[in-house]
Design a protein around this nucleic acid. Structure first.
Lengths: 135, 135
DNA sequence: TACATAATGTTATATTATAACAATAACTAA
DNA sequence: TTAGTTATTGTTATAATATAACATTATGTA
């Protein structure tokens, strides 16, 4: 099987949960996912969390830490969840993955005073989206 | 009272909880704070969370979102919690607030493709601290 | 004073996440 | 193709994180 197409390797539960998140316009929370997949035989929180953990690990989804919610990766750059940036509207809670070569480059090369080199980062911007600004 | 010295305005509970966090070398979790202040008369989670919320709001402490933990602000720039950056060691869990003028400037001025302007951000870098790199 | 606002105390409950263990499926190497 | 290994699943129970609702007290302010 072609290893470049990771989605083909998803297991049944992982696929059910990824499809749900991928179709959703906004991030989904774990228990909201659970309620939505119970008719498909996924009955317990742990089944959801395990699939989520795996999907995050392989970079198919990202966790929005400030919201405890999960969103599908729409950035072809991040096959692995090691460099993520999001914008979050504080009114409508719309979340968008930021895909900026400049930002990625700046952060990937950032070194702090101690010379600590980072293997991963997550950045969350907060503000008002265009729609909510106009209201 | 001098409004420039916000710490003087802390209430009893806020002061107890801030002092505990401020003395701690690593971020503290809400329930660990609760256990530590029960002898001082703070008995319920809500009393802790309310103080934490206020302390975050006025910028005396920051929440490390990926860890659900709280750390005192050691950056004179952020009187208000609107622009935060941390480094987190994935082995020893040591957390350090990053104070880089370049980084702050870059992120404060960052605009995404939609022209959305941000009022706030939180950045968490992950990697190994110096000690843990040598092990 | 009287009013408004913020903080507190308290009980109950909601939400998010993991431990522990048994069973099954998929992968790997002799 | 069999045995060993690793990943995934199913299940019950429970831990950890956080908020709702309401009564009370303290503080700030006109």
């Amino acid at each position: 099987m072609n290893k470049m197409h990771k989605e083909h390797n998803l297991t049944k539960n992982q696929k059910i949960i990824f499809d749900l998140i991928d179709k959703s316009p906004q991030p989904l929370k774990a228990y909201s996912i659970l309620y939505n997949v119970q008719k498909k035989g996924i009955k317990a929180p742990l089944q959801v969390y395990r699939a989520l953990d795996k999907l995050v690990e392989i970079g198919k989804i990202h966790k929005i830490e400030s919201r405890n919610a999960f969103i599908a990766c729409h950035n072809s750059n991040c096959q692995v969840a090691k460099a993520t940036a999001f914008s979050i509207c504080e009114i409508c809670e719309k979340v968008t993955e930021i895909s900026s070569a400049g930002l990625s480059k700046y952060l990937a090369n950032f070194k702090d005073k101690d010379g600590m080199k980072y293997s991963k980062y997550n950045l969350e911007f907060f503000g008002l989206c265009k729609k909510c600004t106009l209201k």
